[in-house]
């Protein structure tokens, strides 16, 4: 059962790799790393992701591009970084949450 048809636009190949492109992998690692080091809570990222996916789903089918999960991931990452001011002058790392890097 290598490939199973769920729907014309949803083919589940259970052996498919998780990331098709390196940028997806980097975006994933970046979002996790920033949460791990306490720059935001994982929930904050999750909410941003839900919002990004929600806008895509609510847009009319002819006005939105093809589904690409990690584009929403990048949108969410960009938004959560902005909301938490990580790139603003004078930003300091919050003293909350876990700070030790995974080793």
């Amino acid at each position: 059962m290598a490939e199973m048809k769920l729907h014309p636009s949803c083919v589940a190949d259970l052996r498919a790799p998780t990331f098709d492109q390196d940028w997806q992998r980097r975006a994933f690692g970046l979002a996790v790393a920033l949460a791990e080091f306490g720059h935001y809570r994982w929930d904050d990222f999750q909410q941003a992701l839900i919002a990004a996916i929600g806008s895509w789903q609510e847009a009319p089918a002819n006005a939105r591009g093809r589904w690409e999960y990690y584009e929403h991931w990048v949108t969410a990452l960009t938004n959560v970084i902005r909301q938490h001011g990580l790139l603003d002058d004078g930003y300091s790392i919050p003293k909350i949450g876990k700070t030790a890097p995974p080793t």
Partner: peptide, 16 residues
Amino acid sequence: LIEKGIITSGTVDKVL
């Protein structure tokens, strides 16, 4: 993020 000192160049690879 690296330039601002938020992460280092090895951080993402370490997490991955």
